[in-house]
Amino acid sequence: MAPGVNDAIRQLILNGRLNATSVMMPAAYIGADEVDALEMLNAGTTRAAIGLHVTLTAPFKPMSNGFAPLRGGAFPPINDMMRLAMTRRLDIELLTIEIATQLQAFLSAFGHMPDFVDGHQHVHLLPQVRNAFLRVVSEIAPNAWVRQCGRVRAGRALHDPKSLVLDVLSLGFKSQAARHGLTTNPAFAGAYAFTPKARFSRIFPRFLRGLPDGGLIMCHPGFVDSALQSLDPVTTLREHEFAFFNSDAFLHVLAESGVTLAQPSGEARGAA
């Protein structure tokens, strides 16, 4: 998304604090130098699975010609995409072409298919979008696993409306992915309210409750720079996440919970 985000993610992978990251091909900051720097982290020893972060929301722009609808030449904001998807007003063929274009761009940049495929702002879970998303992945990258966002029972806080929506959307997504022969991560955690009062070091331990082997925890570490500020409202919280993951406190939380990061294999499976 931005140079500061890229830098933070690479540092955490190098330090053994992350074992997966996904790439936004429509973003301006995934040129050849960034690709090489990320790939070098896996030279000799695979430190991280590398996936495609399918991007279909503003302020990013389509990579394919003729995509619609647009808002000022860019994808619609996520709330607009949700309304369009829920009322079945998206064009599945145009979605299919755009997602396939992003997947082919990943292949051209990295020289291999992604280990997994997910979606920016969870757009891949939406009705209509998931039809196109799962069709493209199953046809072009069938060995990639795809991210579902359903929590385990122990991690379901009923006062968290965002996560409840993700739970519901993931039910249909998982069953549809299975029909396409695609693997999904067995559980998901990491969603929280991006408010100034959020204390990530206090929030993180609850993500581990009941998480099974292969469970996935989403995170958003990064360093704030002008590029990030122009593209995304989540800024300083990214630095809080980076600080926690780069600290001894993170290692202590993992040890207390009996959790370790899974060794990335590049196979179609999730990573804890």
Rank of each mutant, 00 (worst) to 15 (best):
A177P: 00
T195H: 02
G210H: 14
K174L: 08
L208S: 11
P161M: 15
G181D: 00
T183H: 05
L158N: 11
V165F: 04
L171R: 11
R179M: 08
A187G: 07
V168D: 04
I203C: 01
L164H: 06
L164Q: 02
D160K: 15
L164C: 11
G210F: 10
A189H: 13
L166F: 12
D160P: 11
F204N: 04
I203S: 00
V168W: 15
L166S: 03
T183A: 09
A177Q: 05
D167S: 04
A191K: 12
Q176N: 10
A191H: 13
T183Y: 01
L169G: 00
N185Y: 07
T183W: 01
F194Q: 04
V168I: 15
Q176Y: 09
L182W: 02
S163F: 09
Q176E: 12
L208Q: 06
L171I: 12
Y192T: 03
R209K: 14
A193N: 05
L166R: 02
P205T: 10
A198L: 10
Y192F: 12
R202V: 04
S163N: 14
S170Y: 11
L158S: 10
F194P: 00
R199E: 05
G190S: 02
V168G: 06
G172H: 13
R199P: 00
L171V: 09
G172L: 14
A187K: 14
D160V: 13
S201W: 10
G172K: 09
P161W: 15
